[in-house]
Design a protein around this nucleic acid. Sequence first.
DNA 1: CTGTTCCAGATTGCATACAAAAATACAATA
DNA 2: TATTGTATTTTTGTATGCAATCTGGAACAG
Lengths: 230, 230
Amino acid sequence: MARQREHQASPLHAYRALKQRILSMSLTPGSSLGEQRLAAELNVSRTPIREALVRLASEGLVELIPNRGAFVAPIRTEAVIAAQFVREALEVSIALQAAERIDAHGELRLRQAIEEQRLADQEGRAGLFYRADEQMHRVIAEIAGLPLVWEHVLEAKVHLDRVRTLSLQDARSFSVLIGQHESIVAAICARDGGQIQQSLRNHLRQVLPNLAGLKEEFPDYFLDDDQHPD
Amino acid sequence: MARQREHQASPLHAYRALKQRILSMSLTPGSSLGEQRLAAELNVSRTPIREALVRLASEGLVELIPNRGAFVAPIRTEAVIAAQFVREALEVSIALQAAERIDAHGELRLRQAIEEQRLADQEGRAGLFYRADEQMHRVIAEIAGLPLVWEHVLEAKVHLDRVRTLSLQDARSFSVLIGQHESIVAAICARDGGQIQQSLRNHLRQVLPNLAGLKEEFPDYFLDDDQHPD
DNA sequence: CTGTTCCAGATTGCATACAAAAATACAATA
DNA sequence: TATTGTATTTTTGTATGCAATCTGGAACAG
């Protein structure tokens, strides 16, 4: 029985493992998350599992139905739209403020971030590119002096990650995305508010896939209030 | 022993009770939230208490320190600034979209909301006014077709509520706020984007009290990374 | 007097036990 | 055969027990 050396590690481990599987659609919407089974799977008792499920439920990734159990939450079109709205509004505001506060050091960091992306692209390492991409957006928030606002973006982004996973567009070449990143950085360095807004919005909408199409292709994963209007 | 008839009611009850006390500063930052004590107080065991504490911790209202206990989280200036930023960015974007979609029915609802505020003001019922105020902002989100985005605003607002409670400016006459609400509604009905942005930002900054002053008056409640730079 | 060590008390972290509720299977009846 | 009532089984909701960890202070050495 592998004893956990560090305390409070079990709930965190369960939380991360489940979240990863949900966002990568390895656990599909509607899947049952029986506490017993998960506990056996991760070699812990039900208590830390329950703690992880509560956290995931508060983020909207899991539905906790009283006396019935926990299930992977369906993808709600409304939640995806809202998350996209939140992300656009926050990131545009962040970038505008970043433009007002950026200095030479900040410009350097942004160029380095893009360089990392180029490297990851050349080596064809999707995971690495993905991290570098997110890192760049985070750096913009830091330059704006608002690192905590990025946490709010991350909370919303959770509802976008699953549809992106479904669309599998990550497989496409990253050069397009890098180009978009370059024009965003250029706009920030040029302190051109209008250009910032246009290039960033364009970029963020690019990564939001065709929702209606996905909904037709994977109807089981979606749930909207106007479900069966026969 | 008052048995709970409805299942899963205990954690929710504990969550709401604690949240209310924390936001109203009835439980001040740094207060110890011993599981044992809370369990005895609410006549339940530690398990549902723990569930509530985990939820509150994920919202940033409680700090869960391993093997030491749970404490009411200090007010972090950085978090307040970030929350204000999020609220402004989201509410302005929401209001701009509301202006594009509003119809006669929507205008009526907004006028009704203001009427309710006027009533609450005349009767001097602060709690009622507070609810009507929040209701109006929520209605704007509904008109924009983005009710879920309002939930994100609420998450951020949590970090503003405690400083507002401290400043006690709710005691001041509400007529000023009602006037601001009127100009916001007027701007939305007039579809005047610039005016929307100006009146809403002005309003939202009005309700953010003097942070530096509060920090001096209640130093024990605040904690920032640059704490004692002697 | 100061700094260190160690012990007692208290509190959490996790496991497990038990009860309530829901789902399921099945038999009896119309 | 369809349906309904009931018994069984499974699963959650909550309570509780025990070990690990941390705090605070007393005893002690320098």
